[in-house]
């Protein structure tokens, strides 16, 4: 078997047309004015890379470039040259598709398992004084953007504060808790926890019920979110997703990369809601209150939001921010929290 090749001596740029043949263990090079040979084991052959010329590096400092791949493969096979396992993979369509599939699987697994775990580890290691700073600055931002001062009767505020102060925390609780009363007509009935343990309670939620214990149940649920660092974990997760997207997309502007991250991580996960429900139930039990208080207020919340949405749809065909979108069906949560209900 002879293979046509271009020989370069490494000192001048001139190409010499040569043929390569194999004689036992020896690689022979023959050209117009050239006749050389080397043991095949002293010669380095570059790996196959698509249809690119293959390069045979010779001990004399020169090299050959070969474009007749089929002939070279035959010659190399004769010489006992074995290509690497990667060589086959890089040139097979089946491996390309399998790789694409595996990449998707790896990302999915990392997103499902690695990301929440990593976010939790990091969230738990953030020191309390940092949490305080984060809580204060988020409240400031919220006040500027969407919250108004509370119009709730100060006596009712005081009563709720006292009732909440009396609520004994679970033994492993780490943060001090306070209620911040605010109003936000465009958000509707809602309450949310800040990273430092302060809970923003909206007038619209307080107006839903006369039973203070139901408010306490919501507060216990929000406390569960704080104790388990849910908000922090969400922030960490979405920034990690954004970062990964930016890296993967490379040239594409980072703006494009953050959009899907925001869509993916819009609100608490269902698992987080379940964890917070469970935390609330345990707190209520510890304080000799019925765990059924939470489903009661949840049902009222759901009804209120359904009404708001219907109203909004009637008014302008659009929909308002849907607080309950990520919450597990209220029925299901009730069943879990108070089976006797």
């Amino acid at each position: 078997m002879s293979v046509a090749a271009q020989y370069f001596d490494g000192r001048t740029a001139t190409a010499h047309g040569v043929t390569l043949t194999l004689d036992g263990e020896w690689l022979q090079l023959r050209g117009d004015l050239l006749a050389r040979e080397w043991p095949l084991r002293d010669v380095r052959v570059s790996e196959r890379l698509g249809d690119t010329p293959r390069r045979i590096t010779l001990p004399d400092g020169g090299h050959c470039e070969v474009t007749d791949h089929a002939a070279l493969d035959v010659l190399l096979k004769q010489g006992g040259y074995r290509s690497s396992w990667l060589d086959g993979m890089q040139h097979s369509m089946r491996w390309a598709l399998l790789s694409a599939l595996l990449i998707v699987l790896v990302f999915a697994a990392a997103y499902r398992y690695l990301l929440p775990w990593g976010a939790e580890v990091v969230a738990r290691s953030i020191p309390p004084n940092m949490l305080q700073k984060m809580g204060a600055s988020s409240l400031q931002t919220l006040d500027k953007l969407m919250l108004e001062p509370s119009k709730l009767d100060p006596a009712r505020q005081q009563a709720l504060r006292e009732a909440y102060a009396k609520l004994s925390p679970l033994p492993d609780a780490q943060l001090a808790y306070r209620i911040e009363f605010r109003s936000a007509p465009q958000i509707g009935p809602n309450a949310f926890a800040l990273p430092d343990g302060n809970i923003v309670m909206l007038d619209e939620l307080v107006a839903l019920t006369q039973d203070d214990d139901e408010i306490i149940a919501v507060l216990a649920h929000e406390r569960g979110h704080v104790e388990q660092r849910h908000a922090l974990r969400m922030v960490l997760q979405s920034s990690a997703v954004g970062l990964a997207m930016t890296w993967y997309m490379g040239d594409v502007s980072s703006l494009l990369a953050t959009v899907p991250a925001m869509l993916v991580q819009a609100s608490y996960s269902r698992d987080m809601e379940r964890e917070a429900d469970e935390y609330a139930a345990r707190t209520l039990q510890l304080n000799a209150k019925s765990p059924c208080l939470l489903p009661d207020i949840l049902q009222k919340l759901e009804a209120a939001h359904a009404k708001r949405q219907a109203d909004a749809r009637k008014e302008n065909g659009g929909s308002v921010m849907d607080y309950l979108a990520s919450h597990p069906a209220t029925q299901e949560r009730s069943a879990l929290l108070c089976p006797a209900h």
Binding site: G50, Q90, M93, S99
Partner: peptide, 11 residues
Amino acid sequence: EYFRIWIVNLL
């Protein structure tokens, strides 16, 4: 051709 090389190496 390059896609096949690229994706295996990315994996």
